[in-house]
Simulated scan of single mutants.
Amino acid sequence: MAELIKIYEENPSPKAIKQAVDILRNGGLIIYPTDTVYGLGCDITNTAALEKIARIKGVKLEKSNFSFIVEDLSNLSEYATLNNQNFKLLKRNLPGPYTFILPGSSKLPSVFKKKKTVGIRVPNNAIAKAIVSELGNPIVSTSIKDDDEVLEYTTDPSLILEKWERLVDAVIDGGYGDNQASTVIDLTGEQPEVIREGKGSLEIF
């Protein structure tokens, strides 16, 4: 059964962050807040955990479109390749509610070697950034969708726990989440292409 870990975004408790990171390091799955909707995530270096998420989402891991949550752009070359123009675009708009699709790097973990593209996220959320910072590498993440016809995403952490407690190891309660996902922008072509319009403004173009 999953545990509920309360963390305040204004001042994330190092002890609570470490508790979440220990779960990730041990191959566990967590649901955690971002600057958009709550996400389901695991340690990018743990293949068994990655396979668990793929099973939950009903996809094959090598064909999955999970996002990589990174703390900042400093180690991006390990996971993606980008030119100066795209780097400037990311630098201007991250952290923020965007997922940028970029060509994958040759240094990707072996389970993602066949992937030609990766989705990169730097959420503007202190809890998410603190978890990634403490972990020391990206979280592989996917939004948690709802079956509700009115609300696509559950925003209340206690309701999330109720629904997911048998599937994950912890739900990080960072307060009510948003019900609008990130804006997804493909940067692999000659011109940026909007794949999904979400919370992020399109005025950046």
Rank of each mutant, 00 (worst) to 15 (best):
G189S: 12
G198Q: 02
K115Y: 04
K113S: 15
D156S: 09
I120F: 12
T81Y: 12
N179T: 08
G175M: 08
I120G: 09
N124L: 11
D72M: 09
D22V: 00
C42F: 07
K145F: 09
V168T: 12
F205C: 06
K52N: 11
K163S: 15
E149D: 14
D43S: 09
V171M: 02
L202F: 01
I144K: 06
D186S: 08
K145E: 15
F112R: 00
N83E: 08
G104M: 07
Y8N: 15
T47F: 12
I31A: 15
T47G: 09
N86S: 15
Q85H: 12
P123R: 01
S141F: 08
T142W: 10
G136T: 00
N75L: 13
Q180C: 14
P123H: 02
S106D: 11
S133Q: 14
F205T: 09
I185M: 07
P14H: 04
Q180L: 15
R25D: 01
G96K: 08
N83C: 13
D22T: 13
D186I: 01
N86T: 07
F87W: 13
S77T: 11
I120N: 11
T45G: 10
T81M: 14
K88Q: 14
G104N: 04
N124G: 05
R92P: 00
D72Q: 05
F205P: 05
N75T: 11
E51M: 06
A170M: 02
G28K: 03
N137C: 15
L202A: 10
I172R: 01
G200E: 08
I160L: 11
L90T: 03
K113A: 12
D147L: 15
I172A: 08
L4H: 09
K52W: 02
E152V: 13
P138S: 07
S158P: 00
F100G: 05
L94M: 12
A130E: 10
G175K: 07
S13N: 08
N11R: 13
L90H: 05
K114D: 12
E3F: 00
R25V: 05
E197W: 01
L161V: 11
K6M: 03
D178H: 08
N84Y: 02
G174D: 08
S158N: 14
C42P: 00
T155V: 15
G136N: 06
T188M: 06
T155H: 06
A2W: 02
F68K: 02
I7C: 06
I5G: 03
T47K: 12
D156P: 03
F205E: 03
N26A: 15
I7D: 01
S182D: 07
T99P: 03
G198I: 04
